[in-house]
Design a binder for these strands. Structure first.
Length: 865
RNA sequence: GUCCGUGUGGCGGAAUGGUAGACGCAUCGGCUUUAGGUGCCGACGCCGCAAGGCGUGUGGGUUCGAAUCCCAUCACGGACACCA
């Protein structure tokens, strides 16, 4: 007999699919459509197991929907702009464009052997001028629609490299290359008015029923709608023009517990003081060294500087509070100024302790008033508390009601007004980098900032740039900046900032519907294919990418590039877990590092790739060859620096794509992390080999009927039902478990060859979404018609799914002690009679009657004694 | 620090208010094979000779009944706006 030969089988069937153009998406008004999309990859150069997992899941859905009669769109492209290409150019020479397109070619070649049902004719990269030219056109439309504007914003500035740093490039407040202390610097930048859509983006979340609840919750918190009070404090001893300080608070009920006010280092008052007071200048400069990320600000030690300025409490002119500049106040949230209530806010309390400020209580717990000691008393907003310094005397209220009352009271007394505030900030898209989509505007001395004419698009990146010095090569280019003003025709200069790569990925899903149209989208195509019916990707994109895409779809609708139904572009979202692997290492003692002697006991850690180690007889792992033991760290996300990576190319070479697909789907639920293990991959291969062998044997057998035909067919219908249900519910691991069961049942069945062949063909159909090559091979072996890829999904016969007898477990006080077998539809009274006659029940009751007898028909019985 | 998740045998997991551990891996026993890191058959949560008891991170609660719902707590992971 022949051997199972995945390499031969896979090449053969991929060629057959290609020849039949089986995966070309066709607009067919007679059919329902289904658009499956996986988050497109960044072309780093190699595919990794995370890609294999993501695209295999999408492929299961795409193939399953096609079998159910949908006209399926399943495209692939490349998120191709970004910093790694520039870093590669700086480190190894070469050009970002060559590096990127080279990587795309490599990755496409690595991906194709997976046998994904992708329509490759729609492929594009975001760095194709054809793509980013349309993006520039939309930028101009958005500018004209008032969705784009310029304002000053802070960036991380590396004073040695003289370049802007991404947050990722700031490590412990220092530039990653230069090691210099990072400064904050203000630049004029381009922004999208996403905050205009705060309320709409928030409300529309309620309609996204097929998104994970956790993602909707994260977006809700990110948008951060809050109702609060904006209140003006009058100042004492402030410079001219600063006689009032506007403060925003979400807890106006604690206004009577104020003990200080604090402003952001970027607040106009701080800016003013900075110019006139060296102590303030020094402190503010120190604050700016923390960087721009919210995370860094929150984690930094809370510090403040007393400005000497005082503000009067709005309810008591004689009550003065000191004004601090504090490093933890964000200029972008509220008014950039707060009042501190240490008694009821932990951060304020820490601050008050540090600077020896009072902390008067406003409320106490209803039962047993608790004084503020080590911790601030912060009850949830819904818990009632007794106000001891409220606006209306002693009263018991929840925080929520007290906030409303406080706002009403302040408004009535002319002290401030209730305002709704959002945490969501406008989207800054300017990047001072080369490898991105040029922002299509022109700076003219006469006309100011003018959008480029659409007929001049795309504004293409120049190829002749150098990366031998830091900063944006577009700024240094000898000729690229020079252009004519689109308004007056006089000599003018191009904008040299490029767009955030998140812009590129905010509309690629729409472009896939008409990838080569000479407008951003083709209305007929977009109308047919949108929305994405199922979007699949990593949870790390839960907020930014998905929120930006939701905004961008609305902007595209407003500028006429998408139909109204597409303003929520992703009908269903699935967030997959990561692929992890154990880490192998040895700690080796070293006497010296470089030419420096190290103290005794100093060790260096060396990591090993999985293929460099093997399991020893003792159960531990050893390095191949040397047989020296290696230590093992439990599985973590695959990462090159820890060498816990497995190259999909090697797995496909050794076992075939079907094995890689089968294993990565089988071992964990899709939303959770999956650990790649060599043993698991081998087991998957063995199972597929077994299925193939079973099919080969059946292909040759004769066809007498057998006594077990009926039972086998019943098992088949049950499997059809269960596998279909599991795939619908994105439970691919369960679908595979059911396929194992059917395989086992089939191989042991006491049935005739004809029935077995029928079940094997159905098994092949059910396996098609996961292991399409093996399924085609079996289908062909057993005389299936055409390609199994194009066969209609099998249907379970409902009559075959019902069991006549059911086993009812009998619990005694909730613990299972016995069971009875009864006809499926037996009445409760009769079941009770049988239960009370059960040996175990009789013995335990010992003559007395049960306190209660609960019968859940068809499920369970509980006897309470 | 803030927001959001996850936690079940030796391991991945199944069961989402009703028999905890489906299915797979590992392990152990048996059979086949010239041989096998092959194939097939069987056992397999923990304690216990057994009867039986215990058991879903930890502590409490709701319920006839809790892995599942609620409260608290611990551990691990993701996001934090210029990584993609």
């Amino acid at each position: 007999m022949q051997r199972f030969d995945p390499a031969g089988i896979e090449a053969k069937w991929q060629a057959a699919w290609e020849a039949g153009q089986v995966f070309a998406a066709r607009r067919d008004p007679a059919k329902p459509k289904y658009y499956v999309l996986e988050m497109f990859p960044y072309p780093s150069g190699r595919i990794h197991m995370g890609h294999v997992r993501n695209y295999t899941m999408g492929d299961v859905v795409a193939r399953y929907k096609a079998a159910q009669g949908f006209s399926v769109l399943h495209p692939m492209g490349w998120d191709a702009f970004g910093m790694p290409a520039e870093n590669a150019a700086m480190e190894r020479g070469g050009h970002p464009r060559d590096w990127t397109y080279g990587n795309i070619a490599d990755m496409r070649a690595q991906m194709k052997p997976l046998g994904l049902s992708i329509d490759w004719t729609r492929e594009f990269a975001t760095c194709d001028p054809e793509y980013y030219g349309q993006q520039q056109a939309m930028f101009i439309d958005m500018l004209e629609a008032g969705l784009v504007y310029r304002k000053n914003a802070v960036v991380n500035w590396d004073p040695v490299d003289m370049t802007v740093l991404a947050n990722e490039q700031v490590i412990d407040g220092k530039g990653w290359r230069s090691g210099a202390e990072v400064e904050r610097r203000e630049l004029t930048q381009w922004f999208f008015r996403i905050s205009d859509y705060s309320e709409e983006l928030l409300e529309a979340l309620d309609g996204l029923h097929n998104w994970p609840e956790k993602v909707r919750l994260m977006q809700r918190n990110w948008i951060g709608k809050s109702r609060g009070l904006q209140v003006a404090f009058s100042t004492v001893g402030a410079p001219d023009g600063f006689d009032r300080l506007e403060v925003y608070t979400t807890r106006p009920d604690t206004l009577m517990g104020a003990s200080f006010a604090a402003i952001s280092p970027d607040h106009p008052l701080a800016r003013h003081l900075e110019r006139h007071n060296p102590a303030v200048a020094e402190f503010v400069a120190e604050c700016r060294r923390i960087g721009t990320s919210e995370e860094a600000l929150e984690k930094a030690e809370k510090r403040g500087l007393d400005t000497g300025i005082r503000v009067r409490h709005p309810f008591d002119n004689a009550w003065e509070l000191p004004v601090y500049i504090a490093n933890f106040i964000l200029m972008d949230y509220g008014t950039g100024a707060i009042f501190g209530c240490p008694a009821h806010d932990q951060r304020d309390l820490d601050f008050a302790r540090k600077y020896d400020l009072p902390h008067p209580d406003v409320f106490v717990a209803v039962e047993g008033g608790q004084p503020v000691e080590a911790e601030a008393f912060v009850p949830p907003k819904t818990e009632p508390v007794r106000y001891i310094r409220g606006f209306a005397g002693d009263e018991v209220q929840t925080g929520e009601a007290a906030v409303d009352a406080a706002i009403a009271f302040c408004e009535a007394n002319g002290v401030g007004q209730g305002v709704t505030n959002y945490r969501l900030r406008d989207w800054g898209i300017s990047r001072q980098r080369y490898w991105g989509c040029p922002i299509p505007v022109v700076h003219c001395d006469t006309c100011g900032v003018v959008p480029e004419k659409k007929e001049n698009l795309p504004i293409e990146l120049p190829y002749d740039v150098s990366f031998d010095q830091p900063g944006n090569p577009l700024d240094r280019h000898p000729t690229w900046r020079a252009c004519a003003c689109p308004a007056c025709g006089q000599p003018a200069r191009r904008e040299t900032d490029t767009m955030d790569t998140f812009v590129d990925s905010s509309w690629y899903y729409a472009r896939f519907t008409s990838p080569h149209a000479d407008t951003p989208t083709d209305p007929a195509e977009a109308d047919y294919w949108m929305n994405v019916d199922q979007y699949i990707g990593g949870i790390e994109h839960a907020i930014l990418h998905l929120l930006y895409s939701r905004f961008f779809a609305r902007a595209m609708h407003r500028t006429g590039h998408l139909p109204a139904k597409a303003i929520e572009p992703f009908d269903a979202l699935f967030t997959q877990g990561m692929v992890t692997h154990e880490i192998y290492y040895q700690d080796v003692s070293v006497a010296q590092v470089g030419n420096q002697a190290m103290p005794a006991g100093t060790t260096r850690r060396f990591y090993f790739f999985p293929e460099q180690v093997e399991q020893a007889q003792t159960g531990g792992f050893v390095e191949k060859g040397s047989n020296l033991p290696v230590q093992v760290i439990p599985a973590q996300k695959m990462s090159k620096s820890k060498k816990n990576v497995v190259d999909p190319v090697n797995i496909i070479r050794d076992f075939g794509a079907d094995t890689a697909r089968w294993f990565i789907l089988s071992d964990s639920p899709p939303e959770r992390d999956v650990e790649w293990t060599a043993a698991g991959a081998e087991a998957a291969f063995k199972h597929l080999t077994r299925v193939w062998r079973l099919a080969s044997e059946l292909a040759e057998g004769d066809a007498p009927a057998g006594p077990g035909d009926a039972a086998l067919l019943k098992a088949m219908h049950r499997a059809i039902h269960e596998v279909t249900e599991a795939i619908d519910g994105f439970a691919f691991n369960k679908a595979i478990a059911k396929l194992y069961e059917l395989t086992n049942t089939l191989s042991k069945a006491d049935a005739g060859a004809e029935a077995k062949r029928q079940v094997m063909r159905t098994l092949a159909q059910l396996m098609t979404p996961m292991v399409p090559h093996l399924a085609e091979e079996i289908w062909a072996m057993l005389g299936g018609e055409g390609l199994v890829t194009q066969a209609t999904w099998p249907k379970a016969d409902p009559a075959m799914l019902v069991e006549d007898e059911v086993v009812l477990p009998i619990q005694i006080n909730g613990k299972r002690r016995s069971e009875i077998s009864v006809p499926r539809d037996m009445g409760t009274a009769e079941v009770e009679k049988l239960v009370l006659a059960d040996d175990t029940v009789v013995r335990v009751l010992a003559g007395s009657a049960p306190k209660k007898l609960i019968v859940v028909p068809g499920r369970i019985v509980n006897v309470v004694i």
